[in-house]
């Protein structure tokens, strides 16, 4: 079941592995912003060049990336077709009822596909070079400013890290429940959608029961050990911003600025 995770963390020692997570996440956000602002040919060129660099510096297996992009092709096709047919344009090539095929629409479609493809590659690289715990600590650092609008940041960080720790256990649990019900004769290959939907009940109810049971046990254990809230928690040792991380932020900020200007 784990196989479906395309961007699963692969331990390594590449340049990207070594950027501290909070800086990497921040850079990631900058790249997303840059992608959204990209709209000229030069801008696209810069974006592609940047993406290639990122992939090369991360030692990510190229086939994996190609596969994940290939898997998205039908989705891309749908986006492209939708945009080319439904874009309201003044000089359509072909018009029928509410369908308007236009050059602008096609360009718009390509734009969207390009952006999504870049974001998929970059986020794949991000998750492949950052451990989940790393991502967690990065998110925790980045949401700290929210404290000023009275968001209980420590509580949120605790919930997120518990959620991530639960994922492998729950995957295993769900796999087990699925197999147990299949062995009891549960079927999912029905032709009718509604029947197939109902066939999920024997999976979902036990999964909720067992995960809530785990939640109950964990919260009782936490309370019995005197846990009353995340406030008093000892903060994790902060990773200081090293040169590599600062450089990554600067590079991404520069890219973002470039895309905004041109």
């Amino acid at each position: 079941m784990m196989r479906q995770m395309a961007g699963r963390y692969i331990p390594g020692d590449s340049v990207l592995h070594n950027i501290i997570p909070s800086a990497k996440l921040f850079s990631f956000i900058l790249i997303i912003a840059a992608v959204i602002f990209t709209n000229t040919v030069v801008g696209y060129g810069a974006m592609v060049a940047f993406t290639v660099c990122v992939v090369l510096y991360s030692n990510t297996p190229i086939e994996g990336l190609i596969k994940s992009i290939a898997g998205m092709l039908p989705f891309f096709a749908v986006i492209f077709v939708m945009n080319s047919l439904f874009y309201s344009s003044d000089n359509p090539i072909w018009k029928f009822w509410f369908i308007t095929l236009s050059k602008e629409g096609m360009i718009q479609g390509l734009n969207v596909v390009f952006r999504i493809a870049i974001i998929i590659i970059i986020s794949g690289v991000l998750t492949q070079t950052t451990s989940t715990m790393g991502l967690m600590s990065g998110i925790e650092t980045l949401i700290k400013p929210l404290k000023y609008i009275r968001v209980p940041v420590e509580e949120v960080a605790m919930i997120l890290s518990v959620a991530l720790q639960f994922i492998p256990t729950l995957i295993e649990e769900s796999d087990k429940i699925k197999k147990a019900q299949i062995a009891r004769g549960a079927r999912f290959e029905s032709e009718k959608l509604s029947e197939r939907a109902m066939a999920m009940l024997p999976m979902i109810v036990p999964l909720f029961l067992s995960s809530f049971k785990r939640a109950d046990e964990l919260s009782m254990a936490m309370e019995s050990r005197g846990y009353r809230g995340a406030k008093g928690r000892t903060p994790k040792a902060r990773e200081s911003l090293d040169r590599l991380s600062v450089m990554s932020i600067i590079a991404c900020a520069a890219l973002c600025a470039l895309e905004v200007i041109i």
């Binding site: 649990e173 019900q181 036990p206």
Partner: peptide, 8 residues
């Protein structure tokens, strides 16, 4: 193992 989880 722990078949009780399959009750629904």
């Amino acid at each position: 193992q722990y078949p009780e989880v399959q009750l629904f």
